[in-house]
Amino acid sequence: MKVSLFATCLANALYPEMVLTMAKILKHLGQTVDVPEGQACCGQIAFNSGYFDDAREVARTLIDSFEHSEVVVGPSGSCIAMIHEYYPTLFENEPAYLEKANELIQKSYEFTQFVVDVLKKPDLGASYSAKATYHPSCHATRLLKIGDAPLTLLQHVKGLELVPLPEAQLCCGFGGTFSVKMPKISEAMVAEKAQHVLDSGADLLLGMDMGCLMNISGYLEKIHKPVKTMHIIQLLGEGMRS
């Protein structure tokens, strides 16, 4: 399959190595990988803040950049959920783009969902020794409904001991602009999430959305309780190299 990567704005700017690792893993799985130019952001940051017009133009740019792609894969359940859940709303009055949006919805996947559900490769042959816990990000779980795909990948990593995260279903308090618009509430939320991470006894926190991980690890670092934090892609990348 020819897979087009959607880097997502956050990973593009802050975690480029992780996206590169995603490309390597997909190539390793026999896929042809490309990165269409022009792509930048799903538009969620503006959409969630109520700026639909600004979000729509950013979304349009994204739709255009993937117009000729066969399959689109991104390292974030939240960004892919934005496409699936809200592009139809954004383009409800533009039949031409609504059709294009629906095409993108049909062919776009979050990374773990793509590997487990589409490629049917639950075992990437990775090994990584750590006691880890996993945060199921809200949008991937509730909106995109990727289910156990991330856990399936993790369960196949040799040497990885997975311990449950207490109250895992609770939002970490990131919420995009929420974290700066309601900083105190957001801080209270991430404080509780961080405590649950510490309570889990894990020395590694895993997830499949860099926004949430950046939030939790940023807080843990600020309170001087740094727990190593990795995107599942980063873990698989390192685990497959060894």
């Binding site: 809200c138 909106l143 279903q169 939002c171 929420f178 939320m189």
Partner: peptide, 9 residues
Amino acid sequence: PYFSSLCGA
């Protein structure tokens, strides 16, 4: 409307 992280719970 901003008293929500939009987590969908």
